[in-house]
């Protein structure tokens, strides 16, 4: 495998998902495709040559146009505010990737698949879900997605559409604020919620957990307590590290 090099990328579309979160569709020179769950490094260069780079998960399925990245604004961050607030269609950035060979699911791995997302942790898991549908896989996939409020749910309408496919379930929990008549869960993902809503440990799902560190620690720890084999649980943690 050759060295990964920085490739110019042109923004072909950019749209808000929530007030804090934006999706960028890129046209990357020499892009050779990716696996769902992988990420890229993005590099920005100021006009005097100063550079800053950060990693972002790929949101799109390999079958889709793109790659697309979905970026959450970290207010004190260096790169994400630019990507969320400043970057426009037609602008160019640089990307290096795809990167990551472990937090990956593709149709060849089969199911059942259990996806657990906290906040912007949905991004790589949504790539897996999109790939499950776009590839025509029949793997049973269940997503449990924790957001603070309905307005902070990323890809809400698309997730509703994906959930109409046979074998795809999407379960939401809103931890801070639930609208009137809300029929999903209304609390943090804990052992009891997992016991109620997740594939049971006995079905030996391939499990992917992505979100802020506290979410991942809680969820992965609860799964182990519930008897899931730790070797089947893959995690990706992120935090606002840009301070």
């Amino acid at each position: 495998m050759g060295r990964l090099s920085w490739q110019p990328a042109t923004v072909t579309d950019a749209f808000a998902e929530t007030p804090q979160v934006r999706t960028l569709e890129l046209d990357v020179t020499g892009w050779t495709g990716h696996l769902p769950g992988q990420h890229v490094d993005v590099r920005l260069t100021a006009d005097d040559g100063y550079q800053a780079a950060r990693s972002y998960s790929i949101a799109s399925a390999p079958e889709e146009k793109g790659p697309r990245l979905t970026v959450e604004r970290i207010d004190a961050g260096e790169v994400s505010p630019y990507l969320v607030d400043e970057l426009r269609t037609g602008d160019r950035i640089e990307v290096r990737g795809p990167i990551g060979g472990f937090f990956v699911w593709h149709a060849g791995l089969g199911g059942p698949v259990l996806l657990l997302a906290g906040g912007a942790g949905i991004v790589p898991l949504a790539a897996m879900l999109r790939h499950r549908v776009a590839s025509g896989s029949d793997a049973a996939v269940r997503l449990i997605y924790s957001s603070r409020s309905l307005g902070e749910v990323i890809y809400r309408e698309e997730l509703d559409r994906l959930a109409t496919h046979e074998g795809v379930d999407v379960v939401h929990t809103l931890t801070r604020e639930q609208p009137a008549g809300w029929r999903g869960f209304g609390r943090r993902v804990d052992r009891e919620l997992l016991a109620e809503a997740a594939w049971p440990a006995s079905s030996s799902p391939l499990t992917y957990v992505c979100g802020p560190t506290a979410f991942v620690e809680k969820v992965a720890g609860s799964l182990v307590q519930l008897g899931y084999d730790p070797r089947t649980i893959r995690t990706e943690r992120f935090g606002p590290t840009g301070r």
Partner: peptide, 17 residues
Amino acid sequence: GQYLVDDFPVLSAGPTP
């Protein structure tokens, strides 16, 4: 290619043993 942090991010591939 590095930037400085004050906090201590956590990265690992699976549950915390």
